[in-house]
């Protein structure tokens, strides 16, 4: 077995851990704890708000969407590409029942902020 494959093994081990369907990318995410709930911050620069869709399923919060490569035009071509385009999807799990929480979202400076507030127990 060559040394090369040894290096590759590491690469694949890493990739296997973040395995999802291969043709979607995952935006980075920060999750904050707040006084009465959670604040989730998605890094979604260049994504149009109408291309984003949030769904909930029990404790799971899933973000779907796509980032369009808006610069594409005739005679123009990537010289370097580091930004992920096309479909993305990100699912996070929170220790709370989202069905009974209030979700609000806003876009600010290229970030999507999702605020989760537990419902008051009356």
């Amino acid at each position: 077995m060559s040394q090369q494959s040894g290096r590759w093994m590491q690469a694949f081990a890493a990739s296997a851990i973040s395995l999802t369907q291969a043709n979607v990318w995952q935006p980075f995410v920060d999750v904050y704890r707040t006084g009465n709930g959670w604040l989730i911050k998605y890094e979604l620069a260049g994504v149009r708000p109408e291309d984003v869709r949030l769904s909930i399923n029990g404790p799971r919060l899933t973000l779907h969407g796509m980032r369009r490569d808006s610069c594409i035009e005739e005679g123009c071509c990537h010289y370097r590409m580091e930004i992920s385009y096309s479909h993305f999807e990100r699912t996070i799990e929170l220790p709370t029942d989202l069905e009974r929480a209030t979700l609000t979202s806003e876009f600010r400076h290229g970030m999507l902020l999702v605020r989760v507030e537990k419902e008051d127990r009356r």
Binding site: S15, A22, N23, H78, Y79, R80, M81, E82, S84
Partner: peptide, 20 residues
Amino acid sequence: VIKKMAQSADSIEMLVQGVE
């Protein structure tokens, strides 16, 4: 899918991921 790419004068380096 091409995940990342960078061109130089005489080649293109890129990272691709198989889909199907």
